[in-house]
Design a protein around this nucleic acid. Structure first.
Lengths: 208, 208, 208, 208
DNA sequence: CAATAATCGAGACGGTACGTCACGTCTTCTT
DNA sequence: AAGAAGACGTGACGTACCGTCTCGATTATTG
């Protein structure tokens, strides 16, 4: 993102005082904290700088705007963690996965995820970063698991894995964003009760 | 919301100059126009008032904040349309309804809906207004239709209607917000292919 | 200066909320106060607004920059006051005048005058305003008195009044600005001791 | 001020890399150049360093603030010139000296002097630097010349030399700062026409 | 037909945050 | 040790909107 380390490796350091790593970490940490508290709109660069004990200019030196900063903060916390690979029968694996999501969506991180998706509605870069750093890493594994299960004849193979995942996870994201109903473990049960029969191999596929 | 016509019908009119209907329309129209142009975040009440040729106070007199105004504006556009044909078999009714949503979600109005949900992640009042003026009116009818179908034994009755609706519409909203896959009519087909078997009355319900 | 009352008298008021006279006075008053304390350079619009209990935008609405504001403040305090007309023999009149200046130059107003001249070195408008509202009104009277004395044969008439005034007042302003020596009544005595002989009608004028 | 050469001459040089004389010259040169272009207020240390191809810290290492730097810069330009011819009759010496000032005050250097005095009204350090590095070196010689003339009975001795110098030079500085009248050679003539009679030994001194 | 009352437009008000700039200090590597 | 480079915390800049307010003008109902 704004990582100079990604530039072609040069043995010669840039001249001048190097960037303060403490400042960078404090800024990202404060961003997450205040994002949970206030959401994206009521989050001000000024308050982030103040909370991080950092000059406003230092924030603007490294991030062009609030959006880029929030994305960086979100990515930094989420990039390598929170992956729960599962094995065994697909049904059981997905049910376990989804049940693990419920408390996470209800935690402060859930608020951050919602805030990032929300902010992404005004800024294409944000939603793209969300897809690249959140959705896709998780989908990759899930897609693989689904394909194997399809090959094994456990689940129907006339519907692409991504759509299946949308059907399974769509309701969770909907409730995360709209708050019309609580996000409970029971919801997972009901989703599976509804979807399982249709998940198994069908005699005629995609019938109307 | 801001509709005095909903007050108890009184033959006696309030004294004083009545509200200007032209101003109201101009404000809502300008809101939609600028919303499509700039998105929710870069939309200012000041610019709406200016564009509508209206005093800022006139906006604030009738809408408490930007969110309420935006929700009102887009509700005013789609209020009359998009009601469920409340008769016929439930399956067919929902499928037709969802298919009608696809082009709408892909139109500028879809961007408005996404913007409102997005803004709602920072402001509880917004998401509440979205629920009250958008989700709930539509759910009310859909819920009724589902209940009748349950009574008629057409669909299983061990899962509450709201969850069923979350499963049906969740994928649509997810794609609307995240843009990881396109919103096509095919998606509706696949959702139904997956969900229909589980929608019919089951021998044992909610089995794990 | 920034006085709309100077526009061609119109019977119709401008639309909108009228300008707050209290705010205007508070701003000018605070400007003078802080100018005395900090001088021109260390005077910030931000502090003026804060001290006056006024929004920063209100200052910028009416004055384009710090310089215009300081000039306005200076003029407002100085425009009609501090004129000490004197009659009688020119020598005595001027000596009295100058002696009256000493305590004024040593007072806070002296600091303001010095600050305005100082600021005028970076901004032609300031020094012009200083000339128009401070120097010229006082010179006008002094010039008149000198001309009458010349006609009466009391003082030489081969040197223009303005140069005489520069010689009399130059030392005062020099000490006001440079602070190399104190501004005392004694200085006035010495100036007159030096200048009086040359002030009387000379046999040969401007001899080298 | 920042002249290590004034330190007690030591045969042993300080350890480490010696001060770069090129840097010093480039800084002073850039200061003068930018000062003429932008005036004192809009002159930034940052721009001086940039223009001189020098690190900001190098400027701050040798000059405590902008004022000292500016004073140093313009002193460096005129340091060698403009010393009083310390012999001959005092009257003639001063007249010649003052006549030499007129074109200088009218040159860009005059603007610099005015800018420094102006800036000094906000910052005591500036006016002090001006006194120490500009006024005093010149006064020292002039004072000496006056004292010798007093001893020789050429000029009155009941008025201290500094006051005499204020009377002679006050009008010049006044016109330099206020611009109400032009600075011409004629002015010098008039000053001497006015002051000379009072400069000679008087029968009764300081009479009122 | 006035008096009253609520609306309208316009735009000034006290604020808050914006993104930029320069300050004077610091931390790095190079000379 | 001094050089350049340039990041650091700080604080003021001038701008844009916020939501509230005060104007005169307009448009209705009520006495």
């Amino acid at each position: 993102m704004s990582n100079p380390a990604l530039e072609p490796a040069s043995t010669t350091r840039a001249p001048g005082r190097p960037r303060s790593e403490e400042a960078r970490k404090a800024i990202l940490q404060s961003t997450l904290e205040l994002l949970k508290q206030f959401g994206f709109n009521d989050l001000s660069i000024e308050s982030i700088a103040g909370h991080a004990g950092v000059g406003k200019a230092t924030v603007y030196r490294w991030w062009p705007n609030k959006a880029a900063l929030v994305v960086d903060a979100f990515v930094s916390v989420v990039d390598a963690e929170l992956r729960y690979p599962s094995t065994g029968p697909a049904e059981k694996a997905f049910r376990e996965q989804m049940e693990r999501w419920i408390p996470i969506f209800n935690s402060p991180l859930g608020k951050v995820i919602a805030a990032v998706i929300g902010a992404g509605q005004s800024d294409p870069e944000i939603i793209e970063a969300f897809r690249a750093h959140w959705v896709e890493p998780r989908r990759r594994e899930a897609r693989e698991l689904l394909k194997q299960s399809m090959k094994a004849g456990e689940i129907r193979c006339d519907i692409d894995p991504d759509t299946i995942l949308d059907i399974l996870y769509g309701p969770l994201y909907l409730r995360l964003m709209v708050h019309h109903e609580p996000l409970t473990l029971e919801l997972v049960d009901k989703i599976f009760a509804m979807v399982l029969p249709g998940l198994r191999p069908q005699r005629q596929s995609l019938q109307r």
